[in-house]
């Protein structure tokens, strides 16, 4: 269980996160949506303890993250960002093994190597182990980074829920890989000891894959809950400045969104 209590974050005098409280349950896929500048990336970074809030606190399983050691945290919490830049060209396997860094001291143990094998197989990277990261395509790089991040929390942690954060993980992926990624994320989120919180831009992907949505606007939560209740005109028009047309697919029961062709007012 991941909970945020009354979070406030300022950049200079600007209020980026304005008294946000929320709870994220294991076994469900939570996605944060909102227009540019709504504070999505800031919020997810505070939740992951990569930023310190000015007020409020973040609790993992009821414990304040501010009081936990960076290493203990890193064994159960991982974060995938968009476009990770690698300074020196590393082989793919070395990069994926970095996900195990919080779990070993000097050199990886047999367990770490095994996790690395499993994760690379899961992502179809087994044949790329010795390729240099610098020679990969944008989509391949994102797959390697996702493998690294999942390697970090691949195995259950005794007495703790694992928490995965995703900050716009689909940016460099084509449509096939976007769907593949979202299915893998759903698969991970379905575990009883895993909390997944992601930020996505594409509202249709959000509608299709999320169990819970959190709509952020000007640093505040405008709406939250299962997608059908959040993705309605009275929420989307004030947040995005455009009105949605909802198309219900009778065959799958899923809702698709189309937007009016009108720029910002």
């Amino acid at each position: 269980m991941l909970a945020a209590e009354n979070l406030v974050f300022r950049a200079g005098s600007r209020l980026l996160i304005d008294h946000v409280s929320a709870a994220f349950e294991p076994g469900l896929l939570h996605l944060i949506i909102g227009p540019n500048g709504a504070g999505k990336s800031t919020l997810i970074r505070i939740l992951a303890r990569l930023l310190r809030p000015a007020e409020g606190r973040v609790l993992y399983d009821g414990r304040d993250v501010a009081s936990q050691s960076a290493r203990d945290l890193a064994r159960r919490r991982a974060m995938l960002s968009q476009a990770v830049e690698v300074a020196f060209s590393l082989p793919v396997r070395e990069l994926v093994l970095m996900g195990r860094y919080p779990h070993f001291t000097a050199r990886p143990g047999a367990g770490d190597e095994q996790v690395c094998d499993e994760v690379m197989k899961f992502f179809g990277l087994a044949g790329m182990a010795d390729r240099c990261y610098g020679t990969l395509s944008g989509g391949e790089r994102q797959r390697v980074q996702f493998a690294r991040v999942l390697a970090q929390i691949w195995r259950p942690v005794e007495g703790a829920t694992r928490i995965l954060f995703l900050d716009e993980p689909l940016t460099f992926l084509d449509i096939l890989h976007q769907i593949d990624f979202m299915n893998k994320i759903r698969g991970f989120a379905a575990q009883k000891d895993a909390v997944v919180v992601g930020v996505v831009h594409d509202l249709n992907l959000a509608a299709r894959f999320a169990d819970r949505l959190l709509l952020l606007h000007q640093g505040r939560i405008l709406a939250e809950g299962p997608p059908p209740g959040v993705l309605v005109e009275e929420h989307l028009r004030p947040a995005f400045g455009v009105a949605p047309v909802l198309i219900r697919d009778a065959a799958t029961g899923k809702t698709h969104l189309v937007f009016e062709d009108r720029g910002p007012a």
Partner: peptide, 19 residues
């Protein structure tokens, strides 16, 4: 080891538990 983690960026290193 922490310097290796820094190869993938400051924030990524922090997420791996590096101060």
């Amino acid at each position: 080891k922490p310097l290796n983690a820094l190869m993938i960026g400051e924030e990524e290193a922090a997420a791996l538990g590096v101060n």
